[in-house]
Amino acid sequence: MQTHRLIEALVADLQPLRQRLPGQILMRLGWAALAAALAFYGLYGFRDDGLASLGDPRFVVKISLLLTLVGALWPLMRRAAGPIKMTPTDFKPLAWVGLFWLTMMGLEVALVPQTAWYPMMVGENGLFCLAAIPLIGMPLLATIIVTFRGAAPAVASVSGAVAGFFCAAIASVLYAVHCPDDSPFFLVVWYGAATMILMAMGALSGRWVLRW
């Protein structure tokens, strides 16, 4: 086919864009997160202290640690879906979040007696957390991978890993509302391990599925 003829076909196929990529991601992710949340809370419920937990500064700190992570990962997600390779600058917001996490861990070191560090890190729910976050995150990740397939990720495995990270952060927020362990130590160890699982799943599925 001659190229100017192809151009005519493309022009004829032009439709106003109803939805751009960020909107598409947010909408689909919203539905997936809603379904995952309903299923998880339906099965396991919220924390025993329910709404009262909002008055607990340790709970509030935990949630804000996770929410800032979600916020910092969002621009990265937008980049991961596009054809332009990511640069170290794109990861800068993540460094700020890292600093925030380190500060809160420092605070924990200062406020909590040393003998309590280890029990806090091990927590009560470690293994459950390790299973729950990937399970909540998986439908989200599947949604993102499908959406990325129609997008143009520059490096499939990296984009998949970023998607896994982002889904893990959202799943963590959902899970954190259920989980009684509030120590940043616990977050780093167990949430961190769960995040690794989702990132690996994202990177692997990205490698296989995200070629375009």
Binding site: R20, R78, A81, G82, P83, I84, G150, A151, A152, A154
Partner: peptide, 22 residues
């Protein structure tokens, strides 16, 4: 087919070259 992935607040050629390179 992937034009919805271009961020309209940026210029388009880096995006085009990204697609072409890939």
């Amino acid at each position: 087919l992937r034009r919805h992935t271009w961020d309209e607040s940026t210029t388009i050629m880096p995006w085009v070259y990204g697609i072409a390179r890939h």
